[in-house]
C-alpha cells in the first residue's frame, strides 16, 4: 500500500511506539538533504527457501533440525516500514505495509523510494506496529480479507506457517503457527537489521534490487527449541508465540544485490 507516498520520517505516534521499543536510531525529521536530493528505487525481493532451496508449497517434504519431517501449505508474513540505514540515519517507507505470501510471487517484491546515496544496512519490521492493530478497519495489505487478522481476539497475525508433519499429534497431523500479539508483554513484532557486506548504492532514477533470503528452516534452528512433536500448534498470543517470533527473526539474510 501507498508505494508512492514514501520516505520522509515517522509520524510522531510511531516515534513513541519505536521509543518504547527501545529505538536506537536517530530519526531525522527535517534533513534538508532529504528534501532536495533525488531518489532512487529500492526493491526488496524475498526469496523464500528451506535451507537455501526455493520453497515448494504442499508437495516437498523437508526435515528440521530435530529430524522432524514436514510439508508447508501456507507461509505468509508482514513486512512494514522497510528502509535503509546509513550510519545513524534511517530512511523508511512511511506507512509501508506489505504482506509476503509464499503462494503469490507478485507479493514477494517490496518496492519503495529512498534518497540516492550509499547505505550500509537494510531495515524492516517483521509484523505490524501496535497502533495499526487497534485503530479499526484497515485496507490494502492490512485488509482483514487477507486472513491475517484475528477476529476473536483483535490483532494481526504477524507471521503464519501452516503445513503437515508426521511428528504432529494434532488433528490431521497438522502443524499450524499463527504468530501474533501486540500488547504489553505479548508483543511479537521483530525489528530486523541486516548489514550488507558492501555498500547498498541507490542511484537516482534507477532500481536497486536486494534479494533477501527467507529460510523457513530457521523457525526451528535456534536457542529456544520448539519441536513439532511437542508444540505443533500456536494460534494465540503469549509465551510460545514470543519464543517462535524470536526464532524466526533469524530467518533473513541478504543474498545478492544488483542495480538495474
Amino acid at each position: 500500500m501507498n508505494k508512492r507516498n514514501l520516505l520522509s520520517s515517522y509520524a510522531p505516534r510511531s516515534v513513541i511506539v519505536l521509543t518504547t521499543m527501545g529505538a536506537f536510531l536517530f530519526l531525522n525529521f527535517t534533513s534538508p538533504m532529504q528534501k532536495t536530493s533525488k531518489t532512487g528505487i529500492v526493491s526488496f525481493t524475498f526469496n523464500i527457501t528451506v535451507k537455501g532451496e526455493r520453497l515448494v508449497l504442499n508437495d516437498s517434504q523437508y526435515t528440521n533440525i530435530f529430524g522432524e519431517k514436514y510439508r508447508v501449505s501456507k507461509f505468509k508474513y508482514y513486512i512494514s516500514s522497510p528502509g535503509l540505514i546509513h550510519g545513524n540515519e534511517i530512511k523508511i517507507e512511511r506507512n509501508g505495509y506489505h504482506l509476503i505470501d509464499a503462494a503469490s510471487p507478485a507479493s514477494q517484491h517490496v518496492v519503495f523510494r529512498v534518497p540516492a546515496g550509499s547505505y550500509d544496512k537494510l531495515y524492516f519490521l517483521l509484523g505490524v506496529d501496535s497502533a495499526r492493530n487497534c485503530t479499526g478497519a484497515q485496507s490494502g495489505a492490512l485488509d482483514p480479507m487477507n486472513d491475517m487478522f484475528w477476529t476473536w481476539n483483535s490483532g494481526y497475525v504477524m507471521a503464519k506457517l501452516e503445513g503437515f508433519s508426521i511428528s504432529s499429534a494434532a488433528i490431521n497431523q497438522r502443524m499450524e503457527y499463527h504468530i501474533g500479539g501486540y500488547k504489553g508483554n505479548n508483543k511479537v513484532m521483530q525489528k530486523i537489521n541486516l548489514a550488507a557486506t558492501s555498500p547498498i548504492n541507490i542511484i537516482a532514477g534507477k532500481t536497486t534490487e536486494v534479494t533477501i533470503e527467507t529460510d523457513i528452516d530457521k523457525w526451528w534452528q535456534v536457542n529456544q527449541p520448539v519441536t513439532i512433536q511437542e508444540l505443533p500448534i500456536c494460534t494465540s498470543p503469549g509465551e510460545l508465540a514470543k519464543k517462535i517470533a524470536v526464532n524466526y527473526s533469524n530467518m533473513f539474510s541478504i543474498q545478492s544485490k544488483q542495480i538495474k
Binding site: 479499526g136 478497519a137 482483514p144 487478522f149 477476529t151 476473536w152
Partner: peptide, 16 residues
Amino acid sequence: GSINHIEVQPLAPLTA
C-alpha cells in the same frame, strides 16, 4: 474484552 475497536467487531460474528 477481546475486540479492541468498534470497526473490527463485526468480523467476529460475521466469520464465526
